[in-house]
Design a protein around this nucleic acid. Structure first.
Lengths: 362, 362
DNA sequence: TTGAAAGCGCTAACAG
DNA sequence: CTGTTAGCGCTTTCAA
């Protein structure tokens, strides 16, 4: 017969007060460390609390102070090392201020994201850090904002919405990626991302204030500079599952005029793309060149080492947390963490295969 | 339809009741979906709630029901893909039951872990899933347990403590790893882990109910079977930072009789060890063999592909969540997720380098 | 069905 | 300094 209810009720301030022989208010003051309490009462209360194994009830506390000590973090895929590391930054930064993190994974699904925000709001989190899965559908975030909750955006921003946003500027790095590939002779450059979009990418499509927008724009600009013709159809969005990623790769690689280089939007995508490349028996960089965003340790250990664009993910997490803390009225040390993306050239970019004009279909 | 509510005051049941012209109790019943409410009152209340943008206050709700809808998850390092994936499993499983996840990262620090458990308990989480950083110092977990909270252990168990524990049985896989290496001719096999211990590993040391204990035991057993002599000094614990890991590698590799093979306790350790190996210009498997626990995509992409012991991390997370839900009185589908570790032989194990010929051959 | 009223455990006035 | 008295927003008796 396992009882579901706790066998013994938790001790409350009232219990402690009674045991210590003081008023509830005094006990609460002693326990909570606010108001004025005499040495004697303090020790009496502390002893009684110890005795009874008293644990303050945070729920009750936040209920009548109106402020909770938890912040909500909403990400698309915690399995992605990008978010794992960012979460660590957030967690580290926020702990110092006494907050705890409520995490929700949305699977890059907009409805799930909206539900998560709703849920978190109901839980009365002090604030929200959200890596939105869309840069355009954001009414739920606006609502949270309008409802007077602090909201900080991570990675992706939103046009025309005054929300703190933490993201690194990819303009320069993206342009360098484009030039690097163009200089190597590539003209058919694929881009694969898990970012959601209603339709396939087309030129001029609004990607919002997203890294993907920056990165695609960088490539496009490099093409313009070079007076080369760029094919927007090689930008593949919505690669949120293994299947989706596989078909994106298929569309890029299994065609008469395959992409000769592919840029991977994050390390999870890179892993998938590399798998697809391997499956096809393509060699890097002889048959195909690869560049990936996010520099994780394994990118340097594979053969050949991957050319990547590194971003300070951990610091981005910390910065997001600090922005939120500031909004919550905390004095946060003014130190500014540098958020720069930079291209690290290793060995996964080479000249396009001379056979690329032909049909390497299997 | 957007009303300019004073951002300071959220609408409450009382407000809704007033607006709907019914009693607070009726409004609460209608909103909360409990008790008996007439059609008419229901629609009235719902309309009023909509109008006022009412959002139930979870804190208040949990406060007087005594049960909260969040569970605490305590891990050593969320940056470790192992925990990232497990967390996804937990999160996916728990969401269906309406729970949300409060995550705390402890940096593999015991004091932080104890504080985290304390904090979570104060937040009145419904239950706890903990990947304890120690298998021996566990008074805080016992306390939580004794306090009537549901606690499920992840990865590491605790002797003599009746706590649900989710871990895979490594006995068989570990033995196979030992044999594989012995058969290849290795006699000096290093093991590197981030598990905490007060002192350096010594034979017979109590590692608790941990994967590391199983794995070391497996190797040792293989040695016994082969009648070979095993050197416990090659087991390196406490590799929780880059520095610690570097010196563990130094102790293994930079000596007259270096280890000829090294077993990495998880993928993060593996990444570090591979880095150290690369730095020394050692070739795998010619100069040194490597086996790692946890099979993540990159392990197959590096050169040579890593021989690993795979474990169903995602399912382990789900299983932990389900164990907790069961404890919390939920009916969880009886489907049993298979939790097996299995050795995947790839190409990172070879014969020991002839240069390491000081070793006695059997 | 309804409503009034009594809490959940704590903080926050307000008097002594 | 200390105690008394209200609430926070919601659920839950208990009568009507």
């Amino acid at each position: 017969m396992t009882k579901r209810e706790p066998p013994t009720k938790e001790a409350t301030v009232a219990d402690v007060a009674r045991a210590a022989g003081v008023s509830k208010a005094q006990a609460a003051r002693a326990l909570g460390g606010y108001g004025a309490v005499s040495e004697q009462v303090l020790s009496l209360v502390v002893a009684a609390a110890e005795q009874l194994g008293y644990r303050p009830n945070q729920l009750a506390k936040s209920m009548n102070t109106g402020r909770s000590n938890s912040i909500g973090v909403v990400v698309g895929d915690i399995e992605n090392a990008h978010f794992g590391l960012a979460l660590r930054g957030i967690s580290d930064e926020v702990r110092g201020a006494g907050y705890t993190v409520v995490l929700v994974n949305t699977d890059e699904d907009l409805a799930a994201e909206a539900a998560a925000v709703q849920e978190l709001l109901q839980q009365r989190v002090a604030g929200l850090i959200v890596a939105p899965c869309s840069s355009t559908e954001t009414s739920h975030l606006e609502a949270a904002q309008a409802g007077g909750r602090a909201v900080v955006l991570f990675d992706r921003g939103i046009h025309d919405l005054a929300l703190d946003t933490v993201r690194v500027d990819f303009e320069h790095a993206a342009l360098r990626v484009g030039r690097l590939l163009l200089d190597a002779g590539h003209r058919r450059i694929g881009y694969v991302s898990s970012q959601r979009a209603r339709a396939a990418y087309a030129h001029g499509m609004d990607l919002g204030l997203s890294p993907v927008a920056d990165r695609v724009e960088g490539i496009e600009r490099a093409f313009r500079e070079a007076g080369a013709e760029w094919d927007p159809a090689l930008v593949k969005l919505n690669a949120t599952s293994d299947d989706a990623l596989a078909s994106a790769c298929a569309e890029l690689l299994d065609r008469p005029d395959p992409a000769t280089a592919v840029v991977c939007s994050d390390s999870l995508i890179a892993l998938g793309v590399l798998g697809q490349i391997k499956r096809r028996g393509l060699r890097i960089p002889d048959d195909i060149s690869v560049v990936a965003y996010d520099d994780f340790p394994w990118t340097e250990l594979i053969e050949p080492p991957l050319t990547v664009v590194a971003q300070p993910v951990y610091d981005m997490g910390r910065e997001a947390a600090r922005a939120l803390l500031r909004r919550l009225g905390h004095r946060v040390p003014a130190e500014q963490l540098p958020l720069r993306a930079n291209l690290i050239e290793r060995a996964s970019v080479g000249a396009p295969s001379p056979a690329a004009d032909r049909i390497p279909q299997s």
